[in-house]
Design a protein around this nucleic acid. Structure first.
Length: 419
RNA sequence: GCGAACGUAGCUCAGUCGGUAGAGUCCCGGAUUGUGAUUCCGGUUGUCGCGGGUUCGAGCCCCGUCGUUCGCCCCA
C-alpha cells in the first residue's frame, strides 16, 4: 500500500467544511478591511527565500524542500508566504499604488519533525500591508486578526502578545549590550543558549527552560533601549489597542525567528495546542522591500496556521447537514422518475441525494437517516400510478403524498422556513 | 538533528506466565407485505506495521527498520 509521505496528510471530506469556513471568513473579514486575495506560485527560486527569510535561519539552512529543475536552476517549495508577496510587490512595481493590501492562503512546506500542529505540508492564511509606516496600520492589522479569530469563536483561549524589536539603529547597540550581559551569565545558561550567545543572542531571551528564564529575569530588555522613534511607535500602538479595547500582553522576550522583522512583532497563542502554541504571528518588516531590490517601502504582515485553527475549532464546531432531501426509489420506473424528480427539486435550490445503489426500501431509509436529510421521499410503482411521491419528515416521522408537479416548490418552502 | 512512548479488524481498544487472535463500534442481512434512529437475532472483517533472531512454539522476548504520537529544537 502506498501511503502519504511523512508529515503530509489528506484533508478528508469530513474536515473540508471546516477549512472552507476558515477561508470564507478570511475572504469576508479581510475584505472588510480592504484586502484582496493574491495567489503566488508554490515554488520560487531558492535565492528568493535565502535572501528574504535569511540565509542563517533554520528554515533556509535545513528545512526547505530544494531541488534542481531540468534547466539546472535551484528551486524551493515555499516555506512561508511573505517572500513571494514581496517579490510580486517589487516585480510589479506596486510601490506606485500604495497602500497595497493582499491576503493569501495555501500550502507551505518545511522539512521538520512532525508533531501536534506541525506538518511538513501545512497551510497558512496570511496578510501583507505595504505602504503605511505608522502604528495605525499595526493596530488595524491586529484588530483584523482578532476580529477574525473572535468571529470563529476562539477568543476565550487566545492571548495577543506584542513586542518591539527596534530598528537597525537601536538594535545593534542593544545586541552588543545583551551579548556582554550574557557572557557574564554564561555559566548559568543551558547548552543551547550558550551556543546562541554569539549566533543569535536575542533567541536566548525566548528560551523555555526554567533555569534560563530565572537567570535572564534581570537581563536588559529591548524595550528599555529603543530609540525615540521606535519607542514612540510602540507606545502609540499600545494606545491604539487600548482605545480599541483589544486585550494584549507586552512580552519583551518574544523574538521573531525570521530575519526581516523590525519594530512591531506580535503573536497570538493558545493554550490547548501543546508545544506548538502559536496560532498567528507577524510583524513589521520595513526594510525587506528595499533589501529585495524594490523601492524602499514599509510593510507589515502576519500569518495564521490553519491546521492549528482546525485543531481548536474541531472541539466545539458542529456542522449542519449538507442534504435537504433523500430520494428513495423502488423498481426501474421509480429510478427513472426519481432521476428527473431529483433534478426538479435541485432547481429549487435544495440539496438532493438520489439513491443510486438500489436496495430494499428499508436499507434506503437507513441511508436517508444517515444522510441526515430533513425529508425522505419515496417513489415506487404505486406512487407513479397516482403521479405522487411520498414525503416523509424524518424528524417528525410523519408522511404525506404530494403531487409530483408540486413537490419541488412544496419542499423548498418547508426548507426555507427552517427546521 | 536529538530523546521517549506506541503500532492487533474500516474505527476505538483488550489480549494474563510465550501455547494457532477477541470485544465494542461500524457495515450487511433478518424479526410476515414498501418505511430510518431504539431493541432483538445472525453474519463478514486481520500478512498482530515490516524484516531478522531466540524458542518445540512468538501478538507477547531480543535486534533492526518503517510509521505514528509527544517532547527538544524551530516555527504558523
Amino acid at each position: 500500500m502506498i501511503q502519504t509521505v511523512r508529515g503530509v496528510h489528506d484533508i478528508l471530506p469530513v474536515e473540508t467544511p471546516l477549512w472552507q469556513l476558515l477561508e470564507a471568513r478570511a475572504l469576508a473579514i479581510f475584505g472588510q478591511y480592504g484586502f484582496a486575495e493574491i495567489r503566488t506560485p508554490l515554488f520560487e527560486k531558492t535565492e528568493l527565500f535565502a535572501r528574504a527569510v535569511g540565509a542563517a535561519t533554520d528554515i533556509v539552512e535545513k528545512e526547505m524542500y530544494t531541488f534542481a529543475d531540468r534547466g539546472g536552476d535551484s528551486l524551493s517549495l515555499r516555506p512561508e508566504g511573505t517572500a513571494s508577496v514581496v517579490r510580486t510587490f517589487v516585480q510589479q512595481s506596486m510601490h506606485r499604488q500604495l497602500p497595497w493590501k493582499v491576503w493569501y492562503r495555501g500550502p507551505m512546506f518545511r522539512y521538520e519533525r512532525p508533531q501536534k500542529g506541525r506538518q511538513r505540508q501545512f497551510h497558512q492564511i496570511g496578510c501583507e500591508l505595504f505602504g503605511p509606516a505608522g502604528p495605525l496600520a499595526d493596530a488595524e492589522l491586529m484588530a483584523m486578526v482578532m476580529r477574525y479569530l473572535t468571529d470563529l469563536g476562539l477568543q476565550a483561549s487566545l492571548v495577543l502578545e506584542i513586542n518591539s524589536l527596534g530598528c537597525p539603529d537601536c538594535r545593534a547597540p542593544y545586541r552588543d549590550l545583551l551579548i556582554a550581559t550574557l557572557r557574564t551569565l554564561v555559566a548559568h545558561l543551558c547548552e543551547d543558549c550558550q551556543n546562541r550567545i554569539e549566533r543569535n543572542p536575542l533567541r536566548v531571551l525566548d528560551c523555555k527552560r526554567e533555569n534560563c528564564r530565572a537567570t535572564l529575569a534581570n537581563a536588559p530588555s529591548m524595550l528599555d533601549h529603543l530609540c525615540a522613534g521606535c519607542a514612540n511607535h510602540f507606545s502609540s500602538l499600545k494606545t491604539h489597542l487600548n482605545h480599541l479595547g483589544i486585550p494584549y500582553r507586552v512580552n519583551p522576550f518574544m523574538v521573531r525567528g525570521l530575519d526581516y522583522y523590525n519594530r512591531t512583532a506580535f503573536e497570538v497563542t493558545s493554550t490547548g495546542l501543546g508545544a506548538q502554541n502559536a496560532v498567528a504571528a507577524g510583524g513589521r518588516y520595513d526594510g525587506l522591500v528595499a533589501q529585495m531590490g524594490g523601492t524602499s517601502t514599509p510593510a507589515i504582515g502576519f500569518a495564521m496556521g490553519m491546521e492549528r485553527l482546525v485543531l481548536l475549532l474541531n472541539r466545539e464546531t458542529t456542522l449542519p447537514s449538507s442534504t435537504d432531501v433523500f430520494l428513495a426509489t423502488l423498481g426501474e420506473r421509480g429510478e427513472n422518475a426519481g432521476l428527473l424528480l431529483a433534478e426538479a427539486i435541485r432547481k429549487e435550490g435544495l440539496a438532493v441525494e438520489l439513491n443510486l445503489s438500489g436496495g430494499s426500501l428499508k436499507s434506503q431509509m437507513k441511508r436517508a437517516d444517515r444522510s441526515k436529510a430533513r425529508f425522505a421521499l419515496m417513489l415506487g410503482d404505486t406512487e407513479i400510478e397516482k403521479n405522487v411521491v411520498i414525503v416523509k419528515d424524518m424528524t417528525l416521522g410523519q408522511q404525506q403524498e404530494i403531487r409530483w408537479s408540486e413537490a419541488p416548490v412544496f419542499l423548498a418552502n418547508l426548507c426555507r422556513v427552517g427546521p
